[in-house]
Amino acid sequence: MNKKSFNKAINFLKKESFYVILFICLCIAVTAAVITARNNKNQSAQLQKSQAVEQKKIRETAKANEKPSSNYNNALQVKKDNKSKSNISNNEASKGVSNSVSTSFQKPVEGNIARGYSEDPVYWDSTATYRPNLGYDIQTPLGKPVFAAMDGKVESVNTATQDGVEVIIDHQNGLKTVYSNLDPNVKVSAGQTIKKGAVIGVVGKSTLRSAYEKYGDHLHFAVLKGKEFVDPGKYIKY
Results as ranks from 00 to 15, higher is better:
Q46V: 05
G116N: 04
N82W: 11
A33D: 06
K56M: 10
T129W: 10
Q139E: 07
A64Y: 11
V53D: 10
K83P: 00
Q51K: 15
T103R: 15
R59V: 01
T61P: 02
K56H: 13
N99D: 08
E92N: 12
D81K: 15
A32H: 09
N90S: 09
G96C: 08
P68N: 03
A37I: 05
P141S: 07
G135K: 13
P68A: 02
L47K: 13
P145Q: 11
R131L: 02
Y117S: 02
R38C: 01
K83E: 05
S86V: 02
I35L: 05
T140H: 03
I88H: 09
T103V: 07
V34A: 06
Q46K: 15
N65L: 04
S86L: 09
N133Y: 12
N112T: 09
K63R: 14
Q77L: 11
V146N: 02
L76M: 10
I88W: 13
Y123K: 08
S84K: 14
S69R: 15
Q43C: 06
T127D: 00
I88N: 05
A128L: 11
S44G: 05
R59T: 04
E119W: 12
A33P: 05
V34T: 03
A148C: 11
Q106M: 14
A93H: 12
V34S: 06
W124C: 04
A148I: 01
S89I: 00
Y72T: 01
L76C: 02
D120M: 09
P145A: 07
N99Q: 12
K41M: 07
N74Q: 04
L47D: 02
R131E: 02
K80L: 05
F147A: 01
T129G: 09
R131H: 11
Y130H: 09
P145W: 14
K79P: 01
V122S: 07
S118P: 06
P141G: 05
K49R: 10
K56R: 14
P132W: 05
Q46N: 10
S89L: 05
